[in-house]
Design a binder for these strands. Structure first.
Lengths: 219, 219
DNA sequence: TCCCCGAATACTGTTGACAATATTGTTGGC
DNA sequence: GCCAACAATATTGTCAACAGTATTCGGGGA
């Protein structure tokens, strides 16, 4: 979010770790986040935990109530639909804006990340899967050349972590995502913005549908 | 940004006030924001000021460097173009998404705000102008029914305050904006999404162009 | 005169303790 | 046995003092 990532202070570490906890489903929606407990866990003072929680609140991952503390945010089915609609909008636009052809160095870079993602899936190493997935999309969407747009895409992706992993640990879904990444890469190589945009938007659907299905909110 | 606005604590007050200072041009880009000075000004402790500055950093209005403090953010010409491109994207989409016709109660509501905006311009009361302008756009864009989208529009509007008011205090521009608001209202009443989107995007251009002109960066 | 280096200054970053508030548990009246 | 008022606990919010770091200023040497 900030323009230049200043040296990774302890605050950053905590926010990152908590985000990972949320992604991996180690933290559930509505779960309380007590400052002192977190301070013990991260072996730091409550102050830095407080800051981390504030950042997470602004990022939309936790909700804080005055004098009551922070809890992991929970989205309603309606909000999930809105979130994915928003992601569809910004990711489509970003894909269309990427000036093609791109520097071939990015082909190699993205291919490496795709391979790492695939390897992590084979190894069932969820942490690596999540990291590689995140990096792939970040690198790809930065190509649109508009950092405000890329930042918002990132922001929305973070929010959707709240709904995603509760329903997407299964192997079938992961392999599908892996294949779609290679398709995105192919569209980039073929200099086809429209195909790129279509795959990107299509790539979003499964998580949303699985979530809504689980909650019985499919229209 | 947060889902529900919790009781306006002192931190909120400070961030709001500083935002207004930026909008009205009382704070310039690159101007330093010293914690202790602000603490004196707001008659509070450095601690709450710190939190406020953190929020403003995350909102992209100030930049903080470790051990060096916070300064009002400055955007390059390139970034200004990116910012307005982003605003164009999200405001266009929001306008297209508004389900028309809307409840006529909103017609009255928006008209009231338009009139207040016009009155404030006539009175040359910049604080009221800014407030009415902000409210008009907030109310209008909430109509799109997607609060993630509306939030991002808000966020981007805040950022553009950094470039806007340095160049748009002049009466001609203000009156043009006023007229465009009434045009937006008319498009809403006529249930014309496309016209609405076109006017909304057009409404963005003058500030950007004036800024770039001043800096001699017109392509 | 210019440049390097150390002291003084100004500011941010961190800590621990204390105050305010919400929640939970307990007692007494009916 | 049930409810209201009160006490105890848990948790967040605020504060003032201290530590750490960057910048500025002034002196000594070439």
């Amino acid at each position: 979010m900030s323009r230049e990532s200043h040296a990774p202070t302890s605050v950053q570490t905590i926010t990152r770790t908590l985000e990972v906890d949320i992604v991996l489903g180690r933290l559930y929606p509505r779960e309380r986040l007590v400052e002192e407990q977190l301070a013990n866990r991260f072996e730091t003072s409550r102050h830095v935990v407080r800051q981390a929680l504030l950042e997470l609140e602004i990022a939309g991952l936790v909700v804080r109530e005055a004098n009551k503390g922070a809890t992991v945010c929970e989205y309603s089915a309606e909000e999930v639909n809105q979130l994915y609609q928003m992601r569809g909008i910004v990711e489509w636009q970003a894909a269309m804006l990427i000036p093609l052809p791109i520097d071939p160095a990015y082909h190699a870079r993205l291919e490496t990340i795709c391979d790492e993602h695939a390897a992590a899936i084979s190894a069932s190493d969820m942490i690596r899967v999540v990291a590689a997935n995140k990096e792939f999309h970040q690198v790809a969407y930065r190509l649109c050349g508009n950092h405000f747009l890329a930042d918002v895409i990132d922001e929305m992706a973070k929010k959707s972590n709240l709904v995603r992993f509760t329903s997407s640990t299964d192997l079938v879904r992961l392999k599908q995502a892996r294949d779609e990444h290679y398709q995105i890469l192919a569209a980039l190589k073929q200099n086809d913005n429209v195909a790129l945009a279509e795959i990107s938007v299509k790539h979003l659907q499964p998580s949303r549908l699985m979530y809504l299905e689980k909650r019985g909110h499919l229209a």
